[in-house]
Simulated assay, not measured.
Amino acid sequence: MNRQTHMKMNHMSFPTVDVATEAKFFEEHFGARIEFVDVGTGSALLKHGETDIVLEAKAGAVPWHDDFHFGFEFETKREVEALYAQLKLAGVKLETEVYNRLGRGSRFFGRTPAGVQFEIITREDMESKWDARKK
């Protein structure tokens, strides 16, 4: 049995010292919905489509590797550009402009309030040699 054909992403879990700010960020900018906050731990569960986002409350600063990130994909470059403009206007820390590196699709990188890097991408303008769905 090919496990990959039966698996789907279930959740992402991020430690953070400020669950409320991080949850609000995911809700406002990425369309996640806050399901509940555990009053005992202060951690939160958010839903984004079929994927859970768990924000785990931590007492101390959480170091992130510079290259660690999560990504969201849009259908079109226009949607990527629109979110970039919205985030820029909201004062979100953006690390790049919208660009297409080596024909791999238009994208940009930024950081959540807790410093987790995110990537927003589209495959609309991706060269077929990079598209794993076609291999």
Rank of each mutant, 00 (worst) to 15 (best):
F26W: 15
E27I: 02
E27R: 10
E27A: 09
E28T: 00
H29A: 03
G31T: 03
R33P: 03
I34T: 07
I34E: 01
E35M: 11
E35G: 06
V37P: 01
D38F: 04
D38C: 06
T41R: 05
G42T: 05
S43P: 02
S43D: 13
A44W: 06
L45K: 10
L45P: 00
L46S: 13
K47V: 09
D52M: 08
I53Y: 02
I53T: 02
I53R: 00
I53H: 01
L55N: 09
L55M: 06
K58T: 14
K58E: 15
A59L: 15
A59R: 14
G60N: 15
G60L: 11
V62H: 07
P63Y: 04
W64Y: 14
D66R: 11
D67S: 14
H69V: 04
F70I: 14
F70S: 07
F72W: 02
F72K: 03
E73N: 10
F74Y: 12
F74A: 14
F74D: 05
F74E: 04
T76D: 05
K77E: 13
R78G: 08
V80H: 00
V80I: 02
E81V: 08
L83G: 01
L83Y: 14
A85W: 03
L87T: 08
K88D: 15
L89P: 07
G91A: 12
V92Q: 08
K93T: 04
K93P: 01
L94C: 09
E95M: 10
T96D: 13
E97K: 08
V98W: 06
V98H: 02
Y99D: 13
N100R: 11
N100C: 05
R101F: 07
G105R: 15
S106A: 11
R107E: 12
R107P: 01
F108H: 02
F108P: 01
F108M: 03
R111K: 12
R111V: 04
R111D: 08
T112D: 13
P113V: 10
P113D: 04
A114E: 05
A114L: 01
A114H: 01
V116M: 12
Q117M: 13
